[in-house]
Design a protein around this nucleic acid. Structure first.
Length: 225
DNA sequence: ACCCAGGTGGCCC
DNA sequence: GGGCCACATGGG
């Protein structure tokens, strides 16, 4: 199935390297992954900058800060009460299970790491895979609503559930961290630029593959465990 | 006044 | 396993 590779090449040629994930540290990737849950990246950027000002962008400082203070700082990213709880919970669990973020990542293989992340309340599949790929820098393909929407629009049946889609992509691509990182980033870029202008978006680099498609709201089934 | 955004967990059947 | 809902702010 080198249709996947063809799509990758076309997107890369049109959009260029995306240089994902935009963050100054591996821990910042984790924070961003939590904050962006069902939330626009614009709002998350605002909050990340605030957190830098307040100097709370480290595990230790997230653990130390009062929860209600954290809530107020992250407020613009929405769901701020549960996200504050999640940030503190995740920081604590990583801090207690390893001496550093690097150790937390290095001691285990991808499956073990994924299982451990999914065990933390507030980390679902997409967040877990985002952390594994962009924070731990290990190959685990990130599936999101865009991924399913785009391939469906193109007319490819890549499955309904998170696991089906993830397996399809991983089984049909060369296992490579940099490819996984870039592919997901390119899909997001495509979705943001073109896939809302429907159905006759001629500037879309994939328009030659694109079928008619009336709804934007595509849910990934079983996006839990 | 809607609808959507780089989801997740809880509860129900 | 799936369907529905709460969670919350900001932008189109």
């Amino acid at each position: 199935m080198d249709k996947l590779e063809e799509i990758y090449d076309v997107l890369l040629e049109n959009f260029g390297e995306q240089e994902w994930w935009p963050a100054d540290s591996n821990f910042e990737v984790i924070v961003g992954a939590i904050l962006t849950q069902n939330t626009s990246w614009k709002n998350v950027e605002k909050v990340i900058n605030r957190m830098k000002q307040e100097e709370i962008l480290s595990m230790e400082n997230i653990i130390e800060i009062k929860e209600d203070k954290l809530q107020q700082i992250i407020r613009p990213s929405g769901f701020y009460r549960q996200k504050a709880r999640r940030l503190k919970r995740i920081s604590k669990q990583i801090y207690e299970s390893a001496s550093s973020l690097e150790d937390f990542f290095e001691d285990k293989n991808i499956d073990e790491l994924r299982k451990e992340l999914l065990n933390i309340k507030g980390i679902g599949k997409e967040t877990a895979d985002s952390i594994i790929l962009y924070s731990a820098h290990k190959p685990s393909f990130v599936v999101d609503a865009y991924t399913k929407r785009i391939f469906k629009r193109i007319g490819m049946d890549i499955g309904e559930s998170y696991n089906e889609i993830k397996s399809f992509l991983e089984d049909n691509l060369h296992e490579d961290v940099e490819i996984y990182k870039e592919y997901h980033a390119l899909l997001v870029e495509l979705a943001k630029n073109h896939c809302k202008k429907k159905p006759e978006c001629k500037e879309c680099p994939l328009s030659y593959l694109c079928g008619y498609f009336e709804k934007n709201t595509i849910k990934i089934k079983g996006n839990k465990n």
